[in-house]
Computed example of a mutant assay.
Amino acid sequence: MNVSMTNGTLNYLVKLAAEHKEDNLLLMQERDKTVAYYEGDHPSFFKEGRDYEVVENVGQVQSSGFVVMNNIPVSDEGRPVFEDRFKKRVGQVENMEGFQAIRILRPKKGNTYVVFTQWRNEQDFEDWKNSKEFEKAHANSGPQHKQKPSFIDGKPYITKYYMIQPEE
């Protein structure tokens, strides 16, 4: 499965979604930032998209909900270790109340992986973040650790969005 994302104005991305109805393009927004999200079997049609391969996926990305993307730069030699950690993750995020989907996305260009999670709402995400399951999942490399794993190749950052369904 391929995933691609691109940024643009809301008007432009709504128009793009209308032109590609068969591709089920999803839109998300936070303040003045709007992102179009595509996942499917064929290559991206975005002119300036960020393309990914799916390392792992659970659940169905939906047209409503709250999205959190943990953007993590990973060294070339650290990629297998990083991916293996997620394949063996302990936290069972998919069993949390309000969980909708997770995608571990390997960049086709660059070094920044995206851990994409979708929740029913922002409170469900906050409940996950404050849970014992979250602590367990991040025991070796979570946000509270001063020393990052050796495979981290830069400063990770988080982006958050609300799925939107604009009128055409």
Rank of each mutant, 00 (worst) to 15 (best):
M1V: 02
M1H: 03
N2I: 05
T6F: 01
T6E: 01
N7R: 09
K15C: 07
A18P: 04
H20N: 15
E22V: 10
E22C: 07
E22N: 10
D23Y: 05
N24A: 10
L26D: 02
D32V: 12
D32G: 09
T34Y: 01
A36I: 03
Y37F: 15
Y38I: 03
E39C: 06
G40F: 02
H42A: 11
P43C: 06
S44R: 00
F45S: 03
F46R: 03
K47G: 07
E48F: 14
G49K: 01
R50S: 12
R50C: 10
E53C: 13
V55L: 05
V55S: 10
V58A: 10
G59D: 08
V61G: 06
S63V: 05
S64K: 09
G65K: 00
V68H: 11
M69G: 06
N70S: 10
I72Y: 00
P73L: 07
D76R: 13
G78I: 13
R79H: 09
P80I: 15
E83M: 14
F86L: 04
K88Q: 11
R89C: 05
G91V: 10
E94S: 15
N95R: 11
M96D: 13
M96V: 14
M96N: 15
E97I: 12
E97C: 12
F99V: 14
A101V: 08
L105S: 00
R106W: 01
G110C: 02
V114R: 00
V115M: 02
R120W: 04
N121Y: 08
E122F: 06
E122T: 11
Q123E: 14
D124T: 10
E126W: 04
E126F: 07
D127N: 14
D127M: 08
D127T: 13
K129Y: 07
K129T: 06
K129W: 03
S131N: 08
S131E: 06
K132N: 11
E133G: 07
F134G: 04
A139K: 07
G142N: 01
G142T: 02
H145W: 03
K146I: 12
K148A: 10
F151A: 11
I152C: 06
D153F: 04
D153C: 04
G154F: 11
G154W: 09
P156M: 13
K160A: 12
P166E: 15
E168V: 15
E168F: 12
